[in-house]
Design a protein around this nucleic acid. Structure first.
Lengths: 347, 347
DNA sequence: GATCGATTTTAAAACGTTTGCAATCATCCT
DNA sequence: AGGATGATTGCAAACGTTTTAAAATCGATC
């Protein structure tokens, strides 16, 4: 729109356009003196290269795409907010920018992704929240388009680039923590959606239980569709008001754990005296909701930053084997968990 | 990178490139039959135009830029999350995309904005959270670059495009609500930063007080820098533990109101029995924090959507006079406010 | 002083669109 | 029939870069 073009700059310097272009890119074939002269002039006249032209010839846009997941009437949640922040931070370190494509009402997320990829507006994309049979992954793989997923598949056979929280071991840690506090009856509030993280987290819990080998351990699970508040409340209450109520309840992620705390309070239970509650993700509200939710910091922001770095590597270096990375979550012990209530509690 | 080009499509159809281009753009100069034939072929072969090329000739990028405000160690907050969602939704309705530029550590927000503008990667920008003497506005105005601000200046003389919540009247409404419940001693927790919304909201409160003309009304104000949690807590407590404590406290925005509720609980006060608390913004946590924060829905998401529409109009139509719009916030009455405590309360 | 190499620069072809203008073609009017 | 008119379509330039291949310049050597 504004500034002067390469041609004009070249005219002022009485040098050919090609030379100026090379000089600015630091090509050593151009004499050092010329390079300096050009750089200085560019700075002085405030030359800014036209990205469209550059992109047209180089085939690279300098953008990384992100398709904003559609979630009914909801907003960017905690996870997405942190993720986007980290992504932006990571990308800017590599001189890349972030391009956000929103899914219009009535169109599928995949079709938007397709458009992002095929319009050439992005050099790579980041795919959050992997599903069990994720069509986005299938598309990108078939298309051989650079991408990094946040989350992984259940079997490690699928070869693609991903970064994920090590939720398997984290949920094992949750179990051990609560078991050591005397808890034997556990309630898990989960989701019914086909997201892989659901299975990984449940697996972490179950593995830890069988590792312990205590036949007295009981695990009750109640699920509801994600973002369906009514069903979630119902699922929570089915556990809270069960004939034998669990002494420790775990939310698959913090939003669920917070709902557990709410409903428990409503039922007149005191936390953690009557019921221990643990979540996962460490969203902001976890610190605010009394008495403070014990949860795991999933390092979402740093993960996104790391993902940005991985993606840039993939775009530029095209490594032969897929890049994968596990991030260890960290326990954030607040006040929502404690020893098992009642006469039992052999501490 | 991928798909077929206009030239290839034209070759397959045995038609000139120009005609195909026109046909796809729906130019009525092209015979309807040809147009249909081309459209069909494009669909079938999965033709996707190369944006870089289009941008190069049209001079328009199809992007709207947004510089992510830097906020210390923090993430995207509630406001930003809703705002971005709405912006994305609004833009996609007009066939535009969102380009997010993150401010790298050590660089100023203005320098990033400057880069966005001058690289030609955006056709317009959205500027959130206006400051008293906002250098971003000064730059954009001087540069005559299309933009819409969320928030306005204190004097309406500055001519630029903006949309803002009518917080003046909303804070008047808060006062009236509480006054009618018998409250006479008010505490306002505010910020010390030079944001215009701070003054507008305070003005709304003060105007309502003087409108009422009751000499018994007292307003105590305590301020702290935004995002400085320690100072905020101190400010809140200076009011809570004052010799004469206000019976009703107002947070300039929900985060502050939530802090008031927390500290009040810590001080053993019951809400709303001992203290009424009201906020502004209706962030998600406001519904969760017991007993439920009474606040105002600021319609952030819809505002952003509206802003997107305004910006597109500005980019395309270049209207002569600035576009401005006030959005009326709506009271969300929850359980954190009630009648003035004690023997007084003439209801 | 011409020739060979090495160094430096230039010219021109791409990249994939859009768009003004020219060319073609059928149709209509007198 | 002969233009004239209007509807379609084709041609080619332009957008601002990067980059390949070739040309120009320069020093130095024989």
């Amino acid at each position: 729109m504004a500034g002067l073009t390469l041609r004009e700059l070249a005219a002022r310097l009485d040098i050919s356009v090609g030379t100026v272009s090379r000089a600015l890119s630091g090509d050593p074939a151009i004499a050092l003196k010329t390079r300096e002269r050009v750089t200085e002039a560019a700075r002085q006249y405030g030359y800014v290269p036209n990205m469209a032209a550059r992109q047209l010839v180089s085939g690279r846009s300098g953008f990384v795409g992100f398709v904003m997941p559609v979630r009914g009437p909801n907003f960017i949640d905690s996870y997405l907010g942190e993720f986007l922040t980290g992504l932006g931070e990571g990308l800017v370190e590599h001189g890349m920018d972030l391009f956000i494509a929103t899914v219009p009402a009535g169109r599928s997320e995949l079709s938007v992704l397709r458009h992002v990829v095929e319009s050439g507006r992005a050099d790579g994309v980041v795919v959050p929240r992997i599903g069990e049979a994720d069509e986005r992954l299938a598309y990108l793989l078939e298309r051989k388009f650079p991408f990094v997923a946040h989350g992984r598949m259940l079997d490690s056979s699928a070869a693609f680039n991903w970064l994920d929280a090590d939720s398997v071991s984290a949920f094992g840690e949750i179990f051990d923590l609560l078991y050591d506090l005397g808890h034997r009856h556990f309630g898990l509030v989960s989701i019914s959606d086909p997201m892989t993280f659901r299975h990984l987290r449940e697996r972490g819990l179950r593995d830890a239980i069988s590792r312990r080998g205590d036949p007295n351990v009981i695990l009750d699970v109640a699920s509801a569709p994600r973002f369906d508040r009514g069903a979630t409340v119902a699922a929570v209450n089915s556990l809270i008001h069960a004939e034998r109520r669990p002494t420790a309840m775990i939310g698959l992620f913090d939003e669920l754990a917070l709902t557990i705390m709410e409903e428990a309070s409503r039922a007149g239970l005191s936390i953690p005296r009557d019921l221990s509650v643990v979540g996962f993700d460490n969203i902001t509200a976890a610190a605010y909701a009394p008495p403070g939710l014990t949860t795991f910091e999933a390092h979402t922001r740093e993960s996104a930053r790391e993902i940005a770095g991985m993606l840039v590597t993939i775009i530029e270096k095209k490594p032969a084997s897929p890049l994968t990375k596990l991030i260890a979550p960290k326990l954030v012990a607040r006040a929502s968990h404690g020893p098992v209530p009642g006469p039992v509690g052999k501490l």
